[in-house]
Every structure is written in structure tokens, then in C-alpha cells.
Design a protein around this nucleic acid. Structure first.
Length: 306
DNA sequence: AGCCAGGGTAGGG
DNA sequence: CCCTACCATGGC
């Protein structure tokens, strides 16, 4: 029975924490029709994983009336215990399931800027990018371009270098690993509309990770998130925004606060009625009551823009 | 045409 | 530490 295709095998269930709302998460994940690394609808999300070298399509839903997140295998071979455990861990980090959000809502519910969002987005968690290379690439692609174009760049990069799988009329893509880029030239990447700066930084990051000189585990093992930030800042083309973004989306650091982020600035401008964008100093002053939850405040504020 | 976009670097105080 | 050019590409 295991291993048969298109059998919708239940892989595992994860107990849901308090304050988790899958539809709220899916709404965020649905913010761009150009997203190519997963496909979400009102019921759940489907993503292509490589399990023991086999492209495997996994769908996540919440079983009706239960506090459990179900992972279902749509196609692929039923994996062994180790890849199964790694997949479960990936999903825990993808949806930040181990975070206790009660302290965040205690402060957000009393905060003039966050109050409404904390109510309307109740149960939204920071959707992570657990893979360091993918997270860095997404941040690099998103530097100084509008989101629509960043998605287009990611789509072109993924379609060119990643694996894909057709299922029920949709194409699912898997983001290429860093080793894929060891033989790729800047010119090749520039032909996909990356600037030379983005291409060079992406290739440098790929070489570092593929060469074992940079890893998520190493960054998490450093004594503090600030130390991880310093490590990332050593890489040319990675500045403050990118390192804070990676802390927030990949290293699951709830205190990361990308004050240079235009989206954050525009959200605060909109919510406060300012006639200009707030300066980083003004954002830092605003964030004092959010201490410890700056990343969650940022993620919720982004929602005000949609 | 001109300004903006989920920035970064180099150069000069 | 700060501030200022300048870079580079697409969207509207």
C-alpha cells in the first residue's frame, strides 16, 4: 500500500498550538499569484518536497473540527522515518508552530498600531523560509525591487534551475539547491533579469553554503541573533535589511526588526496617517512596546498593506 | 517621464 | 557613528 501513487496517504498529524489559524496563514501565502514554491487555496497548501531524492507532493490541511495539521502525500513514495521527521520539522518551522503567541497578543491587543491587525489576523504566524539558501535568495531577489518583480525573478530562477512536477493540471516547483549554482555564470543569471549585484551575491552565497562555510545550523549555534547578523553582514551584497529579514523568516528570531523595510515604513505611514514614511529612528521608537516581538509586529503590519 | 520598489556599497565627513 | 551619491531594473 505505501508507495502507491495518488493515494492521498496521511503522512502525519501535528498538534496545533493555541492561536493558530490556517486560513489567516493561507491568506498571507496567497498574497501573490506569482508565488511558485507552493500553491495555496482556502483549504490548504501544497508544496513539492524532495524526500529521499524523490519529488513528493505534500498537502497540508486542518482536519475539520480537530486541532491538528494534517500532512498528506499526494504523489511520491511513502518516506522512511528520518525524512518523515525532517519533513515534520520543516513544517513546524514553516508555520512557526512552536511559538507561544499569548505574550504577543497581550501587548498587541493594547497597542494603538497593532490592535486592529491583532484582531483581524488572529492566529496568523510568521510564515518562515526554513531553508537558508532559499531565504537568502528570496531576500536578495527582493532587494530594491517591487514584490511583483521579485516574484517574477524567483519564478524564472526556479523554472530554470529547479525540479518540477505536474499534478492535476498544475506545475509544482522545488527551489534549486546551492550546489546547482556552482557551475552557473553571472551572465546566465543576468539573462534572467537579475542585476549584476544580485547575481554576484547569489553566486557567492551559493558557494559559501555548498562549500560548508555557511549554514543555518551554524548561524543558530552562534551565541546571539546579533552574532548571526554580523556573520551575514560579512557577505558582500548582504546588508542590514537582508540579514534582519533572514533572522525573521529563516532563523525564527522574533526580535528581528527590519527598520529599513519599505513595506514596514509604508504600513506605519498608512496606519498613523503620516504624510511621509517614518524614519528608522522613528520606527525604533515606535517598537519599544513591542520588545521581544518586533518580527511579529512587522509581519502583522505588512498585512495592513493588503 | 519620473518616481517608486520588502537595498547595498563606496566615499566622505 | 552619520550622511550622501550612485547603482540597477521593471512597473505604473
Amino acid at each position: 500500500m505505501w508507495g502507491r501513487r495518488d493515494m492521498n496517504d496521511l503522512l502525519f498529524e501535528l498538534p496545533l498550538p493555541e492561536f493558530f489559524d490556517l486560513p489567516a496563514c493561507l491568506e498571507y501565502m496567497n498574497r501573490s499569484p506569482l508565488e511558485c514554491l507552493f500553491r495555496s487555496d482556502g483549504e490548504g497548501v501544497t508544496r513539492l518536497f524532495m524526500l529521499e531524492g524523490t519529488p513528493s507532493l505534500v498537502r497540508l490541511t486542518v482536519a475539520a473540527g480537530t486541532p491538528r495539521l494534517q500532512a498528506t502525500l499526494l504523489t511520491g513514495a511513502f518516506p522512511g522515518p528520518k525524512p518523515l521527521a525532517e519533513l515534520a520539522q520543516y513544517i513546524v518551522e514553516w508555520f512557526d508552530l512552536e511559538r507561544d503567541l499569548a505574550p504577543f497578543y497581550r501587548l498587541a491587543d493594547a497597542d494603538p498600531l497593532l490592535q486592529k491587525l491583532a484582531a483581524s489576523e488572529r492566529g496568523l504566524r510568521i510564515i518562515g523560509i526554513p531553508d537558508l539558501f532559499e531565504a537568502l535568495c528570496w531576500a536578495i531577489l527582493g532587494q530594491q525591487v517591487n514584490l511583483a518583480f521579485a516574484y517574477r525573478l524567483k519564478q524564472q530562477l526556479t523554472a530554470e534551475y529547479g525540479k518540477s512536477l505536474e499534478y492535476e493540471g498544475h506545475t509544482y516547483y522545488h527551489f534549486p539547491g546551492p550546489e546547482t549554482f556552482l557551475q552557473v555564470s553571472m551572465e546566465e543569471l543576468c539573462s534572467l533579469q537579475l542585476t549584476r549585484s544580485k547575481a554576484r551575491t547569489l553566486l557567492d552565497v551559493a558557494a559559501l553554503i555548498a562549500g560548508g562555510e555557511l549554514s543555518r545550523e551554524e548561524l543558530l549555534a552562534l551565541p546571539s541573533p546579533e552574532a548571526a547578523e554580523q556573520r551575514l553582514l560579512k557577505i558582500r551584497g548582504i546588508g542590514l535589511w537582508t540579514s534582519q529579514y533572514v533572522r525573521m523568516r529563516c532563523l525564527r528570531d522574533a526580535t528581528a526588526f527590519p527598520v529599513g523595510d519599505v513595506g514596514l515604513q509604508n504600513a506605519v505611514k498608512f496606519l498613523t496617517g503620516m504624510d511621509r514614511k517614518p524614519t528608522p529612528a522613528e520606527l525604533l521608537a515606535l517598537s519599544v512596546p513591542w520588545h521581544g516581538w518586533e518580527a511579529y509586529a512587522t509581519f502583522y503590519l505588512w498585512r495592513a498593506l493588503y
